[in-house]
Design a protein around this nucleic acid. Structure first.
Lengths: 137, 137
DNA sequence: GTACTTGCAAATATTTTGCAGTTAC
DNA sequence: GTAACTGCAAAATATTTGCAAGTAC
């Protein structure tokens, strides 16, 4: 929250109630919502906000490095409050998306750099399977 | 090509010129085209084919396990002739998408299974960076 | 006061669907 | 002959854009 204000100021962007609201939804929801899910979360308490504003806020946050845009092979983008590159685990039954905080995956980039002689700047790892809760059913 | 025919027959699906044409485009192009790119490749030699048919063919091929659908964070899906799960390397300058044939990445799934107790069935790894050709410019 | 931001509505882009006519087998 | 398939046009879905009115600073 202080982070948001600091970074917005640093980027010469205005601190608006809409931006704060969008950021708070991401901060409070670890389910990696897409733009519409964020909009729906906001709707009850913030009935005048528009979906376009949600999109614009998210784009700005991603540009400023505040959040991360992820793509788990659905038809919409999801947004992650954690801006640091980290793997995701997706349950193919309940469509839950979990974070994987393990640092060891970061080393993969150097392996790829050596193999293909690319200068790797970002990695997006996604594992699909059935979560423990869904397995029991 | 014989694979296509065998698998289509096995799935009780008809072998049509359209399906053969779509499959051949994927077989001959390793740039991981999206549906529209495939349609455009076909247009000169196959002016009557429709984009809807391209989509339907691709969906069928993916269901039958003939090809792989990938998503590298663009606004459209791309299709990979290689149905086996393997990492991709994307150049953020020229938007080239290359395959990484290294087997060692397959072991990551077991690591994730242990960590999160999921039964992992698929993984999608994508590395973003600048390719050697673009670095020199 | 002004430059930035919002919210609407329209535009764009991608993918899916319904259906009448056609084709593989 | 018939069930599956094609191709069109329309619908559905996701995201972006232009712009007049509003707001942060």
């Amino acid at each position: 929250m202080e982070t948001l204000i600091k970074v917005l100021k640093g980027g010469s962007c205005k601190i608006t109630p809409q931006r704060i609201a969008v950021y708070n939804v991401l901060q409070d929801n670890f389910d990696h919502p897409n733009a519409e899910a964020i909009y729906n979360k906001l709707a009850p308490t913030y009935p005048t906000i528009s979906l376009a504003t949600v999109y614009k806020s998210l784009e700005l946050f991603a540009e400023l490095g505040l959040i991360q845009v992820i793509n788990i092979g659905e038809n919409s983008f999801r947004y992650d409050y954690n801006a640091k590159s980290h793997p995701h685990v997706v349950c193919t039954k309940c469509h839950k998306v979990e974070d994987l905080e393990d640092e060891s995956f970061m080393e993969l980039s150097s392996a790829v750099e050596e193999m293909k002689h690319y200068k790797i700047t970002k990695q997006q790892l996604c594992f699909y399977g059935v979560c423990p809760e869904c397995t029991d059913m």
